[in-house]
């Protein structure tokens, strides 16, 4: 896939990372188009979390570069949604206070903080009380609060690490719907790590399938299904064909 520099939000070149002498990435390249939702799918332990943690600046890399329109990650605003919302939210702060937190760190004036909080609550059609503590909310509500917290800073790039893997299916479906609608409305460049193939296809503009370590790209699949993609999209012929192709690639990559 060739992109003009203007279209590219994230450029990864020659990325290297090893743990205890065991390489995870040895010369990994990737370009992500602005506004795209890129899903990353691959076998357990292939380095999906490692990749977005390096991209988000949470983990040092051994070599190579990750640039955002020429800037380092420290120079841009990013949002990150962790897999385990229980361990990512601050349980000593109410949900609304959790969402205000990154805005306060940014130094936004109080009025704007409230305005954005309101805006997010409306966008995500929040019907529960944000003045509750996280542990008083359901798992889906907690992860929704995490997502709102990540979006509160109006990030240029959003990272999601298996955000729905701890939730039941019904909750997952409704959160997926909400998330895709909001991300497409706001046009935020997103990297979504998922271990669910259907989810990767339904939420993404492009699906990157990774191999086992040392990690390479097994397939790079453009997903041009029309938006919005509701649950019915899971039965559309386009979706079914894509899923069959990806399953095939995955089985070959894992067997290899």
């Amino acid at each position: 896939m060739s992109l003009t520099p203007r279209e590219t939000a994230i450029t990864i070149r020659g990325l290297r990372k090893a743990f205890g002498g065991q390489p995870v990435y040895s010369g990994f390249d990737l370009d992500v188009r602005r506004g795209d939702i890129l899903a990353i799918f691959g076998p357990n332990g292939c380095g999906k979390s490692t990749l977005i943690n390096m991209a988000a600046g949470l983990l040092p890399r051994d070599g190579g570069e990750i640039l955002y329109d020429g800037r380092e990650v420290s120079e841009i605003r990013v949002g990150y949604v962790f897999q385990n919302y229980r361990e990512a939210l601050f349980p000593w702060r109410r949900a609304a206070e959790n969402i205000r937190y990154p805005m306060r760190r940014m130094g936004l004036p109080a009025a704007q903080v409230e305005q954005r909080l309101q805006g997010l609550a409306e966008r995500f059609r929040v019907r529960f009380d944000l003045n509750r503590y996280p542990y008083e909310l359901s798992g889906g509500q907690q992860q929704l609060v995490s997502i709102m917290r990540a979006l509160a800073v109006e990030p240029e790039v959003l990272f999601l690490d298996e955000p729905f893997s701890a939730l039941d299916f019904e909750t997952t479906l409704s959160l997926r719907d909400l998330l895709q609608r909001v991300l497409k409305e706001l046009g935020i460049t997103t990297i979504l790590v998922s271990h669910d193939l259907e989810e990767s296809i339904i939420l993404a503009d492009r699906l990157l399938m990774l191999t086992r370590r040392p990690t390479t790209v097994a397939d790079d699949v453009p997903i041009d299904l029309p938006w919005p993609r509701q649950a019915e999209a899971l039965a559309s012929p386009g979706f079914v064909a894509l899923k069959a192709r990806c399953l095939d690639v995955f089985q070959k990559a894992v067997a290899a």
């Binding site: 988000a56 600046g57 949470l58 990013v78 949002g79 990150y80 962790f82 385990n84 361990e87 990512a88 939210l89 601050f90 937190y101 990154p102 760190r105 940014m106 917290r149 800073v153």
Partner: peptide
């Protein structure tokens, strides 16, 4: 919890 520390860091 390491995740909370990372979350705080990424929020600036």
């Amino acid at each position: 919890r390491r995740t909370r520390v990372l979350a705080a860091r990424i929020m600036g």
